[in-house]
Simulated assay, not measured.
Amino acid sequence: MTDRTGCGSGWHGHCHQVLTWFLSRWGVAPEVAADLVDEAVGGRFLSWTGPHDALVDDVAERLAQSLRPDAAAAPAEPAPDHLRRWLAIREAVPWQDCPQDGGAGPLPPSLDGAAEDIRVFDAAVDPARAQGLLAALELVRTAAARDAPLDFALLRGWQQHVLGTPEPPPFRDLPAFAKRGRERYGIGPDTRARLDACLAESARDAERPLPLTARAARAHLDVCFFHPFDDGNARSAFLVLVFVLAREGVALDAVGLLRRISFRADDPKGGPTLARYIDIHLTGRRRTVDNHRQDP
């Protein structure tokens, strides 16, 4: 199916359709088939990229297992704490090896990529959602301009606009789940304090220098896997990424590659991959700026 579509922009929908047809052929009700396909695929495909053979095999295995009558009888295992897994991986990732942003110094955009994406993508989902996110983005820019320290208190002020709540939302008080329940993030008396400590590491540190791309990617994933709010954590993580860059005078012309991907808490390659995606955006922008300076 991916060969026939050429893995263009619409191939994900075709993939879901074909897999649903497969299950329906073997007597699975359409509604159940759709849920099983969502569970098997689970946002694991990247846009404009054909899946590797190993990923295709794993999706096929998940579908096959879902059809086994004895699958439901398997003994339940204790749910892992994916926040704990992320914190262990976070310590082991060689963040210092991440790309160096293709240059140094401030990088003003020719187009506000974050705002533009909100106006196009989020407004199509819900105009009120886009309006709230744009209001939060203004606060992000203001906080970055005054070099504000990044912590949960700052996040919840933005999140009030993201969610449209009367008051800034509190830190969650129960375990959180994501990716259709495949990831579980634990909660403890020190979870908020640990988030604040992690977010503080997004600032430039002369004694322990790390590339800006690494610090932005790590802070983004911290919010994803600490999952501090009951809702809207992906949007909060996106705002954090924009803030970390903006605090050092760097902005993006486009953010589509950064908003349309999902990472696993237990994947040690996730952080470096996100840092590389950030670097791709910034390097392209710096190259454009340099070319314009060289034009007579």
Rank of each mutant, 00 (worst) to 15 (best):
L46W: 05
R276L: 14
A234K: 07
A197E: 10
P169L: 07
L282D: 00
F238N: 00
D253P: 03
G186M: 08
P99H: 12
A265K: 01
G42M: 03
S9N: 11
R25Y: 15
D205S: 12
D3Y: 11
A217S: 08
G50T: 11
L150V: 10
R287N: 11
L174Y: 14
E183A: 10
P99N: 15
L23H: 07
D190R: 09
P99I: 09
R293W: 13
Y277P: 02
D53I: 06
F177L: 14
P170K: 12
G6R: 08
G157K: 02
A200L: 12
V18K: 06
T20A: 08
C98Q: 03
S236L: 07
G105M: 10
V93L: 02
R204L: 13
R194L: 06
L239A: 04
R62I: 03
L87Q: 00
E207K: 13
T142Y: 13
G181D: 13
V162K: 01
R90L: 13
E248P: 00
G271L: 08
R194K: 09
A143S: 14
H220K: 08
L55S: 08
E31F: 07
P272I: 07
R194H: 07
V41Q: 03
T283A: 13
V223Y: 06
L107F: 00
R85K: 14
H14A: 15
L155K: 00
G132F: 00
S202N: 00
V223F: 03
D253M: 06
P272W: 00
F152M: 06
G271R: 03
V56K: 00
D35Q: 12
R44N: 10
F229G: 04
W95R: 04
L55M: 12
D267F: 11
R259P: 01
L174C: 14
G10F: 11
D290M: 13
G132K: 03
R218Y: 10
A33Y: 01
Q160D: 11
W21V: 08
F229C: 06
R204P: 01
R218F: 11
P272G: 04
R259G: 00
D35Y: 05
L134I: 04
A34D: 10
W95P: 02
R285F: 04
R204G: 09
F22L: 15
R194C: 05
A34P: 02
L241N: 03
I278D: 01
D126P: 07
T283L: 10
P108K: 04
D230A: 15
G8M: 11
T20Q: 09
E116K: 10
P228L: 02
A234P: 02
F225Q: 03
P109S: 11
A176H: 04
F243E: 01
A40N: 01
H14N: 15
P149M: 08
R184K: 14
F177M: 11
P30A: 01
A219N: 00
A54Y: 15
D97L: 14
P209N: 06
L252W: 01
A123R: 07
Q17C: 12
I261Q: 05
D205N: 12
A144Y: 02
L252E: 03
V93M: 06
A128N: 12
Q131G: 11
I89V: 14
P127A: 13
E116Q: 12
N291I: 10
D231I: 10
A251F: 01
W26I: 09
P228Y: 01
L154H: 05
H16Q: 09
H52C: 15
L239T: 03
L221P: 05
E91Y: 09
P189Y: 09
W21C: 12
L274F: 09
